[in-house]
Every structure is written in C-alpha cells, then in structure tokens.
Amino acid sequence: MNFFRLTADLMHLLSIFVLLLKIQKTRSCSGISFKTQLLYAVVFVTRYLDLLKWISLYNTLMKIFFIASSIYILYLMKIKFRATYDPSQDTFRIEFLLGACLLLALVFNYTFTFIEVLWTFSIYLEAVAILPQLFMLSRTGEAETITTHYLFALGAYRGLYLLNWIWRFYTEHHIDWIVWVAGAIQTALYSDFFYIYYKKVLHGQKFELP
C-alpha cells in the first residue's frame, strides 16, 4: 500500500457515498445513468470472483463494499426511486461496450482461463463504464453540482491509480500492462469533464456545457 493507492481507494469510496447522498437527499436519481451503474455492478461482480482468496482484511472488506453498494444503487434506481429515472435521457447502447470488452478480453489476456478472462473483461469494462453517464451529461448539457462532485471523485480515483502504478513500478518493479492501458484510457475519458469542473464548479458556478 502506498499514499496514492490509499487516497485513490478513499476517493472511490467517497464517490459512492456522494452518489448515495445525492439520491437520498434529493430523493431522486435524475441525472444519474442507470446504465453506467449497471456496468459498475457487472464490473465488481466479474472482478471479485476471487472474493474468498485472502489478501488482507482491507482488500476483502472493500470488495464486499463495492459489490454490495453497486447492487444497492441499482435497487435505489430501479425500485425505490424508479419514478425519478428518465430512460429517455439514458440512451447509450451498452450492448456494444459489453460485446467489445468481452471480445477484447478473450483476445488480450494474461492466461486463457474462465476467471482470468472475466477479470480482464472487468478491467476493460470499467475503463468505458462511465461513457453512458458522460453521454447523458452531454445530452442534457448541465448537471446538479453534487452529481459533478460524484464524477470528480470517480475520475480522481482513477487518476491517482496512475500515480500509484508509476510509484509501484519504481519501488516494486510491479508491471501490469492490461490494467495500465485500461486505466490510462479510463482517466483520459474524464479530461473534458475535469476541465469544465475546474472552470465552472470550483468557481461556484453551475455545471453547464459550453
């Protein structure tokens, strides 16, 4: 564990708490893409098939939290606050993302086993899971401030992981190409968002696309 990775994981936790706060406080999931949240649930379930493999208490508890919270968010959006979800705003075709990630995982993986291919699939899928949410944002052209805080924490989490990988490469000679490439793409997808968040939200304005 190092500073960057711990901070990244805490940002990831924070992003989920901010999302839960947004839904509970406004009693609405408007502005949140159900498709993105569904993809995250798929990501966690397919990645943490090794849940019973012991690495540390920290590792196990975080895995349980990510799986449970992602499924709870699906419940909130699909059942508890269903009336506040507008599917006509959430029109990104996730079939293509799922298909492309599965194909990539079948071709580019470390070893061709069931668990390993699903793990690789989850890494690729996480990289692009935010696209339905960003697409929704670009369609509506604006977002509630708390939703942008959620997105910022989520993007910062991945950005910090890049620093963690650089750190681990120099201190432990840790190399993981699949995770590095997917993580770099995932962070890059946030660049436009980060720019507008910095220009507008951090200066006290509403998040609106130019």
Binding site: N59, Y110, Y161, N164, H174
Partner: peptide
C-alpha cells in the same frame, strides 16, 4: 517462467 501480476489492487 512467466508469472501473472499479483492481483492485490481493487
């Protein structure tokens, strides 16, 4: 012998 990267990250 090739070893898989250790999966200790989340």
């Amino acid at each position: 012998e090739y070893k898989l990267p250790i999966k200790d990250e989340l």
